[in-house]
């Protein structure tokens, strides 16, 4: 395996203003990359939803929708996986318990705020999800999609 496509992986970086709507650009870009990596349509749809939630969180929560603050999406292409890191500039930190919610619809009926599904969706849809601190001090979420290759016909 040449190192150009080797374990270190190739990196594409996307820097977006913190304005709602820009998560769609990240979704489209990641989907275009995933399609070229040969991911199945179903997995691409899952990736779109997960990355949309991650970037929306970064815009609304981490950067408090201050358009001057950036959301950075780093897409790393490796032979067996696609890694997506989304980080914000951390105007507001994400509490650990917020990253582990297990919402239930019956509870949501009773609450005025029916939200809280974003991080749960990311966890349900991606193979790995991990919340850390971004190098610059903001919130960062690292998500991994494993490439599944069919055992037959893949020489």
């Amino acid at each position: 395996m040449s190192d150009a496509e080797g374990v270190t992986g190739q990196v594409i970086e996307l820097r977006l203003p913190s304005r709602l709507g820009y998560e769609r650009i990240a979704m489209d870009t990641a989907a275009a990359l995933a399609r070229r990596m040969g991911l199945a349509d179903e997995r691409i749809d899952a990736l779109r939803t997960a990355i949309g939630e991650a970037v929306t969180n970064a815009i609304e929560h981490g950067n408090q929708a201050d358009a001057a603050m950036k959301v950075v999406v780093v897409l790393t292409v490796r032979p067996a996986e696609l890694i997506i890191c989304v980080s914000d500039q951390g105007r507001r930190a994400l509490a650990l318990e917020q990253t582990k919610t297990q919402p239930r619809i019956a509870d949501a009926f009773q609450r005025a705020d029916k939200g809280g599904w974003g991080i749960w969706l990311m966890r349900e849809l991606m193979d790995e999800v991990e919340f850390t601190l971004a190098p610059g001090g903001g919130n960062q979420v690292r998500m991994v999609v494993h490439l599944e290759r069919s055992p037959v016909g893949d020489q």
């Binding site: 998560e23 949309g52 929306t56 705020d113 809280g116």
Partner: peptide, 20 residues
């Protein structure tokens, strides 16, 4: 439709609450 996000889901849960 190719984009329903968690905020959209919350809106729809709101509708279901009232429908019930």
């Amino acid at each position: 439709n190719d984009y329903i996000n968690s905020a959209g889901i919350a809106i729809l849960i709101g509708i279901v609450t009232e429908v019930n």
